[in-house]
Amino acid sequence: MEIRFSHVTLTPIEDTSFVIPKESLTAITGAGKEEALRFMAEAFPTKGNIYYNGEKKLKRNLKKYKKEIKYVGVDFEKEFSFENVYEYYIYYLRYHHIKVKDPSESIYNVLKIVGLEEKVLNDNLSNLSSSVLKRFQLSLALLEDSQILLLEEPFLSFHEKEIKEIFSILETLKEKFHKTIVIATEDHNLIYQYFNYLVWLKDKMVLSGSPEELYYQVEGKDKPEIVHFIQMVEEKKGIKLDHRKDIRDLIKDIYRSV
């Protein structure tokens, strides 16, 4: 589903217009990104409009958006007092009126997608490690077949290996299940490494496009370290190195250039 912001006020930018392509893995970064996520989810902007596949977001359609758009916050906020993981899933399905043929099957499916083992169903929520809890939080958003997934800084609990796994899950959701995934993050290294589209709320402007193009075009220090290094080599020594993402490729280029 394509998402379009039209003349929306996003503090500190007064008139923001940009498009998030459908079935993309888009990063949104810079001041105002959290507000943008909220407007894509349930809140409404005070100025301007948001369109989903060309259809204007209206208050009377809120129910529809609740089904189609899922927001995964920075923290897992318990909605119910259930401690057991399985019980929590079941009550979540009931409370949110999610229609499924077989609840257990749906739960097993989402567990599989997020890479959790079935034995986690017997665990206590308060005993889950932060990365398992984050996967569980993501799995709740997948119980309903929503078209848009909005995630706020989802990688704070993960180490490098797990981040790779999570991106592989997100890629599958995008490719196989045709989901549009928008992630708010300030981690430029991650954006450069994994995303194919970037919306950058930068200095009261909105820049959007391929992360590689934007990072090499825009001046400033808030960019991936590898990009900053490659640009500095050109600036200081006049040596043009290829735009690499992998440090091992960069090393080979350096070796050839000396």
Binding site: H159, E160, K161, E162, N189, E225, I226, H228, F229, M232, K236, I247, R248, L250, I251, I254, Y255, V258
Partner: peptide
């Protein structure tokens, strides 16, 4: 262990392997 080594350290360690530097230098310039 799945831990990401900070960029400048990682770069220097790999450059050391190719004998292009002989210490960890944290400043880009």
């Amino acid at each position: 262990l799945g831990l990401k080594i900070p960029f400048m350290v990682d770069l220097c360690v790999k450059l050391e392997y190719y004998k292009m530097v002989d210490e960890i230098i944290l400043e880009e310039e």
